[in-house]
Amino acid sequence: MEDLISILVTTIRVSTPLILACLAGLYSERAGIVDIGLEGKLLGSAFGAAVVAAVTGNVWLGLLAGIGVSLVFSGIHGLASINFRGNQIISGVALNFLASGLTVFLGAAWFGRGGNTPPLSGGARFYAIQLPFARELAGVPVIGPIYSGLISGHTILTYIAFLAVPLTAFVLWRTRFGLRLRAVGENPKALDTAGMSVSWLRYKALAITAVLVGMGGAYLSTAQAASFSREMSSGRGYIALAALIFAKWKPYPALGACLLFGFLEALQYRLQGVSLPVIGPVPTQAMQALPYVLTILLLAGFVGRAIAPKASGQPYVKER
């Protein structure tokens, strides 16, 4: 039981940035913009958050800075793919390269720690929050471990990530903005002819994407870890995209997919150095590869037919 709880706690921890990035991708892809640059935004905002938190000692300013960085990235992506009708994959990949290079370069230039930022402590980090009555309920059987052990004791960003799921579902299916968002990703012309601006709507979606993924990046460097280290996003942006496809662009399945990926990651931490029957000790590298292998397997075969938003990846051009 204790083992399971501890694996699940880790699952929630490592899933948090995935959920944020995945929902971020959901907004942008639902609006018809493929955002392979999630990875770069995650990395860039992790860096931005760590730098500002380290310099100011205030994690909230760090969070704002993280979001700021991904807003800038989103702005560039928007300019390239909405205004200049460029190829969205290329723009996204370029942003990933930019983030990867720029974070190391600036980090080395500013702090001289080989691309890492100074360790954060005190008010420069997000800490676990104890939910009400967590202490009192800790001893109660079943409820205790689940509430006090599993649900309580995470940072604010984790709770935001989990709350963002029902909120996104609500926005998507119950609000005017959601209706238009879904429409612009399916048939932007329908919106244009109904007298609405396709570009403006897509920019709004990209801004939401930026805010969510910015929080995910800030989580990496100021909550999960206590500093920025080079390439610390390590493919989470791509995994979030895979989870999004696996979830067929729907919020609750996206949560499920991210938790699954998170669980595998948690499992691999746990299984490192553990000796399995018959096989013997499993090489660490093999376990570390597990989430990535699963990504390939899921995308290759188990997803079934994932139907992307129809206008996804296509720049909108007014006809004639």
Binding site: L179, R180, A183, E186, K310
Partner: peptide
């Protein structure tokens, strides 16, 4: 100019 996977109602109110 319809969104194919929307219902009639959704298409009518869109915008």
């Amino acid at each position: 100019m319809l969104v194919d996977n929307f219902t009639v109602l959704e298409n009518v109110i869109l915008g």
